[in-house]
């Protein structure tokens, strides 16, 4: 297993290099003037332009800049954001935990709820409960999460005043200990709910299909022939085997979400990577854009690796092949 993990990590290095080169090239191709973007609507003096161009090597050929970027990267230098006036690594390290917090909270609800709904629905296929659950989850899944987020804000925050509309903490707070925790829960509730509802209904649909498939397998017939009760068949034979496809889908969704739920973070002004990414793109802050993409790519690569390891742990057939 250790060898498998090492091999996968080795394979991901060229992949990461290709992703970084590609994103730098794409940024090179898009129109716009970074020096102009830096000063906003004011006219740029030739002296200032020359100074900035020299300082950031803007007129070096692309391969030279690519090489220097990689050289800096291996030394842990992600560059300096002249828009935020902070080192890029600093920005990432501040914003990433917020996105991780939102994603983990969302998934902590989405996965168990998705599994439970999928199990209930899949073990009673084509009955009233199943029809109800399937229709409801399809309807909810069809709602884009950013729109659902806005509806939640309008209803629960603006109209009822139960939750704050935006952000992740109050401007000024003296709360400490458990009160501080409750205050944060208050802020994260709506974005996490919008996130969890969307992902949870997706997981429920995948789980339902997987449960129906598992129930048609021969070993379920064997379990029935052994005289096992329905609940113990579901617990011992259906749950684990049906969860296998969910591990892949949830893992992929988790990796993608770590790169920043751009729309959701914008709707709730959640100061995570998604929001940082949007701001950086708007300001043509290339260094930050590239760093967010690198973080997302690393997250996806690592999560995919974890998914593969989990898959091997859950399914001994894959373990043998690995």
């Amino acid at each position: 297993m250790a060898r498998f993990i090492l091999m996968r990590l080795m394979h991901s290095i060229p992949l990461l290099i290709a992703i970084i080169a590609l994103i730098l090239l794409m940024l090179q191709l898009i129109p716009g003037d970074p020096v102009q973007a830096m000063v906003g609507d004011y006219p740029v003096s030739p002296a200032f332009r020359e100074a900035i161009t020299k300082q950031y090597h803007l007129d070096d050929p692309f391969p030279t800049r690519l090489l220097s970027y990689f050289t800096n990267l291996v030394q842990g230098d992600f560059g300096y954001s002249y828009q935020f006036q902070r080192p890029v690594l600093d920005l990432i390290l501040t914003h990433a935990p917020r996105t991780i917090l939102l994603t983990v909270t969302g998934f902590a609800f989405a996965i168990p709820v998705g599994i439970l709904i999928g199990l209930i629905s899949g073990t009673t296929p084509n009955r009233r409960t199943d029809h109800l659950v399937t229709t409801a989850s399809l309807l909810v899944y069809a709602i884009p999460s950013f729109w659902l987020g806005q509806i939640l804000v309008l209803g629960l925050s603006v109209k009822l005043g139960w939750f704050p509309t935006q952000g992740m903490q109050p401007m000024i707070s003296r709360a400490q200990g458990f009160d501080w925790f409750l205050e944060r829960v208050h802020y994260i509730a709506l974005p996490a709910l919008a996130f969890a509802v969307h992902e949870g209904t997706r997981f429920a649909r995948i789980m339902r299909a997987s449960v129906i498939d598992t129930l048609s397998q021969g070993y379920i017939m064997t379990a029935r022939a052994k005289g096992l009760s329905r609940s113990s068949i579901i617990r011992k034979h259906v749950l684990r085997n049906s969860s296998l496809p969910l591990v892949t889908i949830a893992g992929y969704a988790f990796g993608t979400a770590l790169g920043g739920a751009v729309l959701l973070e914008t709707v709730f002004a959640w100061p995570g990577l998604g929001l940082l990414f949007v701001q950086a793109v708007r300001m043509r802050d290339n260094m930050t854009v590239v760093a967010v993409v690198i973080f997302a790519a690393i997250a996806i690569i690592l999560i995919n690796l974890i998914v593969d390891v989990l898959y091997a742990l859950l399914d001994p057939r894959i373990r043998s092949r690995a």
Binding site: G218, Y219, M221, A225, H237, R240, N241
Partner: peptide, 19 residues
């Protein structure tokens, strides 16, 4: 479960839980 009847099936691979 006890002293009644049981059954063996044609395709043992499919009728045994792979995990």
């Amino acid at each position: 479960r006890q002293n009644g009847f049981s059954m063996i099936f044609q395709d043992p691979l499919g009728y045994l839980n792979p995990t």
